[in-house]
Structures are given as C-alpha cells and as structure tokens.
C-alpha cells in the first residue's frame, strides 16, 4: 500500500505541472493567434492607447513573447506558478481579488456537486443492480432504454427542459396549493434562493447528475453481469451461501470497483457541467462566475478559476485512486 501511494503521488506532481503548462500554453497560443484580450474587451470604442497599455501591464500582458507566435512564454508560466503557490490568482478587470470572488462562491458549487454525486451514485447503482440482476427482463429493458435516452440529452438541454417542465409548470401548480410547506415550494423554483441554500439546489443538482447517473447505471449493470458470470461467484454459490450474500458480498463489491474509478473522472464532468447548470438556474457559484466572466470577456478570471477547478479535479482523482487501492488488493500489492 505504501509503495503504491508513493508511486501514485510521484505521478501526481508531473501531471499537475503538465496540465498547468498545457493550460498556460494553450492560453498563450490563443492570445498570440487570436489577438489581444484587452483590446477585445472594449470592442469598437477603444480608450486611449495609454489606458490600454496600463491595463496590459497590470495583467501581465505586456510581455514581448506574446507577439511571437508559438512561443511558449516559459517566463510567464514560471511567474504564474510562483504566484499560484502563494495563493495569488490575480485580480479581475474591476480590480477584485479572484480568490475573494471564488471564496464567496465555492460553497454553493460544492453543495451543488455534492447533491449531484450523492444522487447519481445512489440511484445509478440501484438502477444498475436491478437491471443487472434481471437481465433481459422488463426492469433491465426499462433501465437500458431510459439511460440511453438520458445520455442523449446534453446537460444544458436537459436543464432547460426540466426548468420549463418541473420548476415552472409543476412549480407553479405546487405554489398554488396551500397544503405544501414553504420549504417544499422552495425546492420547485427555477432559480437559486439564498434562504434555502440546499433545497433550492436539489433540482439543479439532479440535472447536473443526470448524465452521470445514466453512465453509472450502465457501468454497474455491465460490471455486475460480467461478475455474475465469473468463476468466483460460482464458487460462492457452491459454498452454499444464501443468494443475498452471493450478490451482496461476493458480486457487488467487485462490481463497484469500476464505478468508483468512474466517479473520480466524473468530478471533471460535473465541474464542467456546473458551468451549464449554474447558468441555467442562475446560481451564484463558481461556474456562474466563469460564465459571467466569459460574457464580460474577463479572461484572467476564466483562466484562474479553471486552473483552480482543474486542481480540484486532479486531487479528486488522486483520492479516488487511493480508494480504489483499498477496494482492490491486486492494485495495492502490484
């Protein structure tokens, strides 16, 4: 276990640095080929040249290497890494610290993604197990059909449609009924309510987790069916164990190993999806911040926040890998 952990940590550092550099280099290339983001900020009415120069200097965009197409600008990368290490992620175009902006918003996004992860894991695994145990029966066909359909819905399409159907149509009806408590009504609103920091995130959370729910259900199903055919499950039956134990102990644990790995990768999907969900439901989270900054062409914020989210994603993957080793001794003793 110790050696596995050490090796995994050792792999983690170059991947983090590599991904950071990739993000940096792509940004540099975009600026070198796409043009100056400061000028783009003002569109057709540019302010005097001195103002633009001053802003360039302020955001570190006055570096000569930005003029040379293809130059990786290692100097800028180095400076930026040093700043990140001191938790200095820069300022937005209005002069506010980006760490402050994120600090205000991350609890909302954390709640949103937590709701999504809990929902998709529990419901996805249950659906997958039901389908896998009754292969080719009604439940299985139903789960296969509905998950295929769900996967075909891009998150934003699903989100806007759920917003119209559930939060508006159904929500209006619910609000008109006196016997529903206020907190229940708060759940069915098309927007975020700061008085109900968890409940008003339930529907956005379900939307965010819907795609991965379908993926988890299918993964669980396939992996369960494969394991049910395996020799060690036959051994468990030959040992005279009850069916419940054969499935619950000998099959399920093995079948959930790929699901755990998937959830690690899924953190990335969810953080991207939060952009979409927070935009649709007007949620003041980190994704909403990215979207807002995109609209305002504030690329410093976009890059800094995406950098933070990428770090969160990589760390989540590291944690999942450790968990994976706990579940599967073959990895642990490799």
């Amino acid at each position: 276990m110790g050696r596995y952990l050490a090796r995994r940590l050792l792999q983690f550092i170059p991947v983090v640095v590599g991904t950071m550099f990739l993000l940096h280099y792509m940004t540099m290339l975009s600026i070198q080929f796409g043009g100056d983001p400061i000028r783009a900020l003002f569109g057709d009415n540019p302010p005097p040249a001195q103002v633009i120069e001053a802003m360039r200097a302020r955001f570190g965009l006055d570096n000569g290497c930005l003029e040379q197409k293809g130059n990786p600008c290692v100097g800028i990368f180095w400076d930026r890494m040093l700043q990140y290490l001191q938790f200095d992620f820069g300022i937005n175009f209005r002069g506010r610290e980006i760490t402050d902006l994120v600090g205000e918003r991350w609890p909302v996004t954390l709640r949103l993604t937590l709701i999504a992860i809990i929902f998709e894991t529990i419901v996805g695994v249950i659906l997958g197990v039901m389908a896998g145990l009754r292969k080719d029966k009604f439940v299985d066909n139903f789960v296969r059909f509905s998950t295929t359909l769900l996967i075909a819905f891009p998150t934003f399409v699903f989100g806007v449609i759920i917003q119209v159907l559930v939060a508006l149509a159904l929500g209006d009806w619910i609000k008109a009924q006196d016997y529903f408590p206020t907190w229940f009504k708060a759940m069915f609103t098309p927007v975020f309510l700061s008085d109900y920091p968890w409940l008003s995130l339930v529907i956005p959370g379900l939307v965010l987790g819907a795609f991965s729910l379908a993926a988890i259900a299918r993964l669980t199903r396939t992996s369960l069916i494969e394991n049910l055919r395996s020799d060690y499950v036959r051994t468990a039956r030959a040992k005279g164990l009850a069916q419940r134990r054969v499935i619950g102990v000998h099959t399920l644990r093995n079948s959930l190993i790929p699901v755990v790995t998937y959830i690690g990768i899924d953190v990335g999907t969810l953080l991207g999806g939060a952009l979409v969900t927070e935009r649709i439901f007007n949620i003041p989270g980190v994704g909403g911040l990215v979207f807002q900054s995109v609209t305002q062409k504030d690329s410093t914020v976009v890059i800094a926040v995406v950098t933070m989210l990428t770090l969160v994603f990589l760390t989540a993957n590291l944690i999942v890998d450790v968990f994976y080793a706990v579940l599967d001794p073959r990895i642990r003793y490799e």
Binding site: M26, T27, T269, G272, G273, L275, V290, V306, F313
Partner: peptide
C-alpha cells in the same frame, strides 16, 4: 495523462473565449 487532467468543458471554455472569431 496531462491532457486528460483538463476537464473537457472547462478546457474548451478557456480556449474558445480567447478566440475573437
């Protein structure tokens, strides 16, 4: 691994928002 470390949608937003066209 390095490219995989960048979540798809987040990466796409960063790069595309820098393009003028």
């Amino acid at each position: 691994d390095i490219f995989f470390g960048l979540p798809f949608l987040l990466g796409a937003v960063v790069f595309l928002q820098l393009f003028q066209i």
